[in-house]
């Protein structure tokens, strides 16, 4: 039990250090999210009120799609040279590895959501200045939920050597997180902090449930 926090922080620190040096998320995932935002703009047309109305949803959608790419990369680096096998040599470490991967993904995704959120505020007129702290918390709770599921099923892409399985698994599974995050964001920007806090607590409950689930079953995905 006591090994879990140590493994978690070691794995998270390793993943973040890799990103800091390789800048994969910054150089490829972030531009992907921005491209998607522009594409949504083309799809909806330059109608300002419509864009402002849909901005919260578009922000979270682009974050989700970018996240799928991020999870895939996060595990592909592990499969090179059998790195994952090396990680798992630590006894009873599977849960810690999972939490570490999820924490590193959440930190990167949080930065991504905050950055794209500022861009959405600029491009689509999303009023982010009403409750900035609340929005940052919603962003954090949302990315934890995405990471909890993505870090669990990202593993399947490496083990199966086929990426196609990931989106079809992850997107229906994250839909509750997506719904709660979008609703919380919408409530916060439309000046209804009470409702935003309600959705935020729903989101926090999903996060806790998915993290617990991932922690419990991760070892089953890895073994043998």
């Amino acid at each position: 039990m006591s090994v879990v926090p140590a493994v978690m922080s070691a794995v998270a620190a390793k993943d973040l250090r890799m990103e800091a040096r390789g800048r994969h998320a910054a150089s490829s995932v972030m531009p992907f999210a921005v491209t998607m935002l522009l594409a949504f703009g083309f799809a909806l047309g330059p109608d300002r009120p419509l864009l402002a109305q849909t901005a919260a949803g578009l922000l979270w959608l682009s974050a989700t799609f970018a996240a799928v790419d991020l999870f895939h990369r996060a595990y592909r680096t592990e499969s090179d040279d059998g790195a994952l096998g090396g990680l798992l040599l630590a006894p009873g470490a599977a849960g810690g590895v999972y939490l570490g991967k999820a924490a590193a993904a959440a930190v990167q995704l949080w930065l991504l959501v905050v950055a794209t959120g500022l861009l959405v505020a600029l491009l689509f007129g999303l009023p982010v200045t009403h409750h900035p702290l609340l929005l940052l918390m919603v962003a954090a709770a949302g990315v934890v939920g995405l990471s909890a599921i993505g870090s669990l099923f990202g593993l399947l892409t490496v083990l199966g050597r086929r990426q196609a399985a990931l989106p079809v698994l992850v997107l229906p599974l994250v839909s509750p997180v997506l719904i709660a995050a979008i609703r919380a964001t919408q409530a916060a920007v439309s000046g209804d902090p009470g409702q935003a806090a309600g959705w935020l607590s729903v989101l926090a409950a999903f996060d806790a449930a998915f993290l617990a689930l991932g922690y419990l079953v991760y070892g089953h995905l890895l073994e043998d």
Binding site: G160, R162, A164
Partner: peptide, 11 residues
């Protein structure tokens, strides 16, 4: 459908 996709993974 995702479950069946996981079931159909090679290996």
């Amino acid at each position: 459908v995702g479950y069946l996709a996981a079931r159909a993974l090679p290996g």
